[in-house]
Nucleic acid binder design. Structure first.
Lengths: 266, 266
DNA sequence: TATAATGGTTCGGTTATCTCGAACTATTAA
DNA sequence: TTAATAGTTCGAGATAACCGAACCATTATA
């Protein structure tokens, strides 16, 4: 049969998502958006409010900080993620470029750790580093970013199929791969090379070099990518230097992860 | 009448909380813990799994990274929080001690931003700074920490009452204030002084100096505290120097916040 | 000042669905 | 081989989710 799901819970989660995409919303705005009875929306809002999953400012409902509790827990839960964080900062320091660690979730990619490379967003003012809000937690379509492609290249066929069913290959820029056959060939190449490139496939002007991170049990933990402006990612630096350094750092990370994994059994 | 709430949603949220407190759990473990039918637990797990709010490793269910998406959103949503982050790091650099920014949520305090002061946990090795998992997102009982007390001192009576009804004054250490009358007198003093102290009331050996942050509309946005070992928080440094510096930084932050608030109307 | 608009809340009746327990399979451990 | 654990589906009964309408309170508008 078709999979059983708790519809009331789904509706509550819908309310949460809607509030986030609207950037805060009132009772009536939500009623309009969700197309359900006002009293029903009210019921869900009350429930989520009471638990701290929402907060209210005047008449506007917003995402509550309780999510931060679970979110940070999820991020700190795996030792491997924390080790990856260190790799991200180390690697970023070494090459002086932005670095990200991305994990699959809900058949998309979620940004778990990022370096705060001053140059990348604010060329000069150092003060802005900490004022720039973190973009951790944002979702990527896997096919359009280097981390995502590196992850997909390791997925078994049925999982890959599920990803395509759920999200397809939406066009993000003129360079995004939107043809399925072409995408399969691309994944083939990535598997051979051990490195995924994304050349302005996610955002115009940005090039990315990514590599998947494999856990001690052989499963894909996530992926790390180096990201920077096209004009700094050219020739050998783009095609071989950065890939080589990335490979080195990811390999080291993988041994650290399996070492720490072994520690738990001693 | 008594407040209406969606019980199915509450149950799903219960499942989430239980999984987090157990640090991951199997279907049968959850069934035992929650004391509901196994098929019911299964239904909730399926629903949350499908949306990315849970992930599964073998037979063990864990908190999913989707929470990070909402959590980081909630943290970045208010400009004031991002400005507070900057104050936290600046202040920590200035005095060389741990600093925190805490916001009320669900009648408790939630840690939103913290400095990563090397000394505080790992006296020497610098490498550990980034390997130490962030403790952002953790909940405090408001009465036992300096930030919480500073916040409570600004609450209207009925809100304060709600806090006591929900959580009481649980003892955390031998120095925690657990008597209501005594606690009211303490809040009185904090209001007069503009500074809240917590002297080993949360953890043995730790002293804290806190001050609430007021928003442009007069409401309490949260609080900032300086935290450190008792042996470094003594005499005038504890009773007047650190309070003065804290007052200065919080006042500056408050003007920055109202400036940025005014910017939105220009 | 009257009037409209918006938000918050409660109510009861109908219906959807949540919940339970049992049953069955698959996988792994003893 | 047996026991233990996990995953899954089923139908029946009980519950509570959902709706629409109504009401009050507050704020904006005429």
């Amino acid at each position: 049969m078709t999979k059983q799901t708790a519809k009331t819970t789904k509706r509550s989660l819908d309310v949460i998502d809607t509030i986030q995409t609207l950037g805060g919303a009132t009772l009536d705005e939500l009623t309009g958006e969700l197309e359900i009875a006002r009293s029903t929306v009210h019921l869900h809002l009350q429930t989520l409010l009471e638990e701290g999953y929402l907060t209210k400012e005047g008449a506007v409902y917003h995402i509550g900080l309780r999510f931060l509790n679970h979110g940070e827990y999820a991020r700190s839960r795996k030792k491997a993620y924390t080790l990856a964080k260190q790799t991200v900062t180390d690697l970023s320091d070494r090459i002086d470029e932005e670095v990200e660690f991305v994990v699959e979730n809900d058949n998309r990619g979620i940004l778990v750790h990022e370096s705060f490379h001053p140059d990348s967003h604010f060329p000069t003012k150092e003060r802005h580093i900490s004022t720039t809000p973190s973009s951790a937690g944002i979702y990527y379509y896997l096919h359009s970013v280097a981390t995502g492609k590196a992850i997909l290249a390791e997925f078994p066929d049925e999982h890959l199929e599920a990803v395509l069913d759920d999200w397809g290959l939406p066009e993000q820029t003129a360079h995004t791969i939107t043809d399925q056959d072409e995408f399969f060939r691309e994944l083939e190449e990535i598997r051979d090379r051990g490195i995924a490139f994304a050349d302005e496939e996610y955002v115009d002007g940005l090039r990315e070099v990514g590599r998947r991170v494999i856990g001690p049990d052989g499963s894909v933990l996530g992926a790390i990518a180096i990201i920077g402006p096209k004009y700094r990612f050219t020739n050998e630096r783009y095609t071989s230097e950065l890939p080589e350094i990335l490979r080195e750092y990811v390999n080291d990370l993988e041994t650290e992860i399996s070492d720490s994994y072994l520690d738990d059994y001693r």
